[in-house]
Design a protein around this nucleic acid. Structure first.
Lengths: 255, 255
DNA sequence: CGTGTTGTTGAGTTCCTTCAAATCTTGTGG
DNA sequence: CCACAAGATTTGAAGGAACTCAACAACACG
């Protein structure tokens, strides 16, 4: 094991794409044999991160693209005065650092929220890949469009919902996403360590007010969110409270 | 002239891509001769919209993709109770409806903020285009990634800034964007009709508070925003007030 | 068994919203 | 060209949502 420039430990075990763990994920569309071969050729290795480690650092020059193999990550932006805004989350199958394929400097950091493992691709071969394998390029565009839709949701949440609605919205979003990607069982409980300070930074609320909002939702029986786990006993009720529309996301491709 | 299903008037004048008005825009990378031919083959026509008309309607099934040729548009989302959140803006060269290339139902509406003209592409040929012309597909991914970065900014603004900072942020964003795309001269003044109600819906603020914030910025000499025009006399000062980082966007490709 | 991190609670203040009404603009028809 | 209606902006006042400051309790880790 050796440490690479970006932190995290790359390790010799390189899962062949044929036995990619993501193939077992119900919400993901497994690529066909041909695509798999292309992906395998593009891939340079794998890296593991422990909870709290950073995959990308704001302001750095990006040299890689990643796909999440296991674990959950968050993407955030730091302001000069130290304030932090969490932009969104990455679950297995999500692509990390697509913007960095185009920009010299990255505008955000990415940190592991749980222990995580990622698949590594070289940034400088991305253009060639896109030219020679249009099908993969198409799937990447698909992923980018979907990511955009998620950010759209986040904007609506921040712009139109009050504190308790935001907390409920985020809980439902995370638990749903986790169930879709196999990170959580289908029982509405996501076991993951998130501090209230992090929740506050996702939702644009103060820590104290976040705490009180979480308590209110717990008393109401809608969301029981502790540092260890998020539990949403009745997804429909919580969704309703947060004014979310039920959506069945179509299966997504992955790289 | 005849009206098509989505509103707007398509008209017989079809600008050949060779003389595309976007070529004159400083912030846009004109495609080369080969690409231009592909684009021209993909294009089905042009449509004009007057201020207030809708290009896409939330919940409808999408059949087309558009590129803005002239004018400014906004993309927004309606909640069940009538609240509205404006997601972002489209300036010349921006692609409209990329998500609709993948999703059956669109999650937002798009409306013309000024009289506008768009270039129309058929959605059902998008996949074929991506397969046969990887270079165009790559550029579209580029655009999607850039759009994502803009939404990221919006999230930071809503999550971390107070009312006056948000108004200043939006003013700078719009004026800068307008100057980059040739919609406004390089004098920091964007002549465009935007009501305070619209501004409120972009920023997640009440109309009354939006009004008071705008007045405060006017008194401070930072932003003079009337229904007819946005004036930012000193971009650097306004940017500083809104805690924005100065950025020189690289030229963007367009379709 | 300390020490640092995270969560909880109380009190006071600020920011933002809501409601309501008045003024100003703009467009339209007579 | 004026009168009028509809839409947009402005102002005041009061209430509520969210923030800050500050202290303490619970927990996790070496």
């Amino acid at each position: 094991m050796k440490s690479d420039g970006n932190g995290g430990r790359s390790n010799g075990d390189r899962t062949p794409c044929r036995t990619c763990p993501l193939s077992a994920t119900p919400g993901l569309l497994t690529p066909d044999e041909t695509q798999r071969a292309w992906i395998e050729a593009f891939k340079t290795g794998e890296t593991s991160f422990v909870r709290g480690e950073q995959i990308l650092r704001q302001g750095a020059r990006a040299t890689r693209l990643y796909t999440v193999l296991s674990g959950v990550m968050m993407r955030f932006r730091l302001l000069e005065d130290g304030r932090r805004q969490i932009i969104n989350f990455m679950f297995p199958g999500d692509l990390i650092g697509l913007q960095s394929a185009f920009d010299a400097e990255i505008s955000h950091s990415v940190e592991a929220l749980t222990d995580a493992r990622v698949c590594v691709f070289p940034r400088d071969r991305f253009f060639d890949l896109a030219m020679s394998h249009p099908r993969l390029s198409y799937d990447i565009t698909w992923l980018a469009a979907r990511e955009e839709a998620a950010l759209e949701e986040h904007i609506v949440a921040l712009g139109q919902r009050n504190a308790r609605e935001r907390v409920a919205w985020l809980a439902v979003f995370l638990v749903q996403r986790a169930m879709d990607t196999g990170v959580a069982a289908a029982d509405g409980v996501l076991r993951m360590t998130i501090t209230q300070g992090q929740v506050a930074d996702m939702l644009g609320l103060s820590l104290v007010h976040t705490n009180r909002s979480m308590q209110a939702l717990r008393r109401a029986g809608l969301v029981d969110w502790t540092i260890h786990a998020i539990a949403v006993p009745d997804m429909a009720a919580a969704r309703d409270f947060a004014q979310m529309e039920a959506e069945a996301p179509p299966p997504r491709p992955f790289i």
